[in-house]
Simulated assay, not measured.
Amino acid sequence: MKMSHFVSCVTLCVFVAMPAAAKSKKDKFCEELAYASQQMADLRKDGSDEKEAQLIVAGQYDDDQLNHLQMIPYLSSFVYGLDKEKLQGDVEASFSEQCKGFNG
């Protein structure tokens, strides 16, 4: 009977830890993309058009980072959709907050 309690406890701990691990992975992904959003914002402020900025930011990722590469059009849409006032703000923090709050 004690063994079954131990197994139940271990099983519960694994299921509780899994969402925490998944969240930290999501947070890390959001932070990496937020950093790239700030790079793209800086490129926009320096006069780069959207396509050029996409290519520059995408160039920093390897082919095995497919999830990051797939996010580039959405990232540029976010950055190039900002008005000039928001572009001057903390784009990285804004993107990170929205990304971490997304439950899709």
Rank of each mutant, 00 (worst) to 15 (best):
A21S: 12
D83G: 02
L69D: 00
D63H: 10
F95K: 01
R44P: 02
F29W: 06
Q60H: 11
L12F: 12
M18N: 10
K26S: 08
A58Y: 09
S96P: 00
D62I: 05
V57G: 00
Q54I: 02
D63I: 13
L66V: 15
M18Y: 11
C9N: 10
K100H: 03
D90Y: 09
S4F: 10
A41Q: 03
I56M: 05
M40R: 01
Q65L: 07
P73W: 09
Q38P: 04
T11G: 06
S48L: 11
S77M: 12
G81V: 08
E50V: 15
E32F: 04
L75N: 02
S94M: 15
Q98S: 11
Q38N: 12
S8H: 07
L55P: 01
F6M: 07
L55N: 07
A58E: 14
I72L: 00
S76P: 00
K84C: 00
D90H: 09
P19Q: 10
E32H: 03
C30V: 05
F15H: 06
E97W: 04
D83M: 06
Y61A: 07
Q60F: 12
F78S: 06
A53E: 02
D83V: 03
L55E: 11
E31N: 08
G47V: 10
M1P: 09
A22Y: 14
R44F: 03
G59T: 10
P19M: 10
C99P: 03
E31G: 07
C99K: 03
A36F: 07
F78Q: 07
M40E: 01
D90G: 02
K23N: 13
V91E: 06
K51R: 14
A58I: 10
I72K: 01
D83K: 03
T11P: 01
A53F: 02
T11W: 03
L33Y: 01
A53V: 07
S96D: 09
E97Q: 11
T11E: 06
F15N: 06
G101N: 15
F102N: 14
C99V: 05
L82S: 04
V10A: 10
M3H: 06
G89F: 09
M71S: 04
M1L: 15
V16W: 12
G101A: 15
M71P: 03
A36G: 02
K45M: 09
F15M: 13
K45N: 06
L33H: 04
L33G: 02
V7D: 07
Y74W: 08
L43M: 01
E92C: 01
V79W: 03
A21T: 14
Q88Y: 04
